[in-house]
């Protein structure tokens, strides 16, 4: 299970004068959960956008299973097996929840994987929704997305990813806006995906929950990867403390004022 699925090497991106991502490299192995943390504006989402083809990097390469996918269009990147959720969720509000999964199930990737015998897409969609915690026998999966609470919509996004049968899943702040109970019930779903051999990248601000399920964390600040390692290593790193709490010099200046 230690084969490398995704390699990001030396990726940089700047928007005008702002360096959003600066020379970032990392590897992702099958069955691994990598957490990415960092203050707001540190380039985490831009990195995801680069990997998934929504943003073309200025420099560097993204390689997925020996295929160079740098700058390929998003649908191609999903087609080879990288699925993502969006930080700003925008489901198809007027559709019932289970119908939100239909585009994923209708995609060339899923049709290819199932070799034409996909059967009833609605039924498959219901199975997946049950997997992400929608109560099958209730009216919840039939409610239009407009009427669902935020936590369900977040899990609907996760379901949309699972429907694609991906090898890599990138979760962009999945836990944000979820209640503690919802997070607690979502964690086992992610762990189950990991145990099935899917590689997962999680961008999170909720560190406690993240550190429960990941053993490898990357820390970003101002577009650069400033630390990498286990949660304990990362939390003890001075650079990380500075990024999150501010450097001592600044604090001294503030107290001096």
């Amino acid at each position: 299970m230690s084969d490398v699925l995704l390699t990001v090497s030396g990726v940089s991106k700047h928007f005008g004068g702002v360096v959003a991502v600066d020379d970032v490299s990392f590897e992702l192995k099958a069955g691994e959960i990598v957490g990415i943390i960092g203050p707001n504006g540190s380039g985490k989402t831009t990195l995801v956008n680069i990997i998934t083809g929504f943003v073309r990097p200025d420099k560097g390469r993204v390689v997925f299973k020996k295929e160079d996918i740098t700058g390929k269009p998003p649908y191609h990147i999903t087609d080879v097996g990288i699925a993502r959720t969006f930080q700003m969720i925008r489901p198809f509000y007027q559709l019932p929840a289970y119908k939100n999964l239909i585009p994923s199930l209708f995609s060339p990737r899923v049709r290819r994987l199932l070799g034409g015998k996909y059967g009833d897409r609605d039924a498959v969609a219901m199975d997946i929704l049950e997997e992400v915690g929608f109560e099958r026998d209730s009216s919840v999966p039939y409610k239009s997305a407009r009427n669902l609470p935020h936590g369900y919509l977040k899990r609907l996004e996760l379901g949309r990813c699972i429907a694609l049968r991906p090898e890599v899943i990138i979760l962009d702040e999945l836990f944000s806006g979820m209640s503690i109970a919802e997070v607690t019930s979502t964690v086992p779903i992610i762990e189950k995906l990991r145990d099935e051999g899917i590689a997962i990248i999680m961008i999170e601000h909720r560190l406690r929950e993240l550190f429960q399920i990941t053993d490898h964390v990357l820390v970003f600040n101002f577009g650069r990867k400033i630390a990498e390692g286990t949660p304990e290593e990362v939390m003890n790193s001075n650079e990380v403390k500075e990024a999150y709490l501010g450097s001592e010099e600044i604090e001294e200046e503030e107290t001096a004022c």
């Binding site: 649908y75 209708f106 899923v110 694609l164």
Partner: peptide
Amino acid sequence: KGINDNDRAIMSSGINI
């Protein structure tokens, strides 16, 4: 209809819009 609504979601479903 999904393309009209939210083309990013359709694209990230692996569909060439």
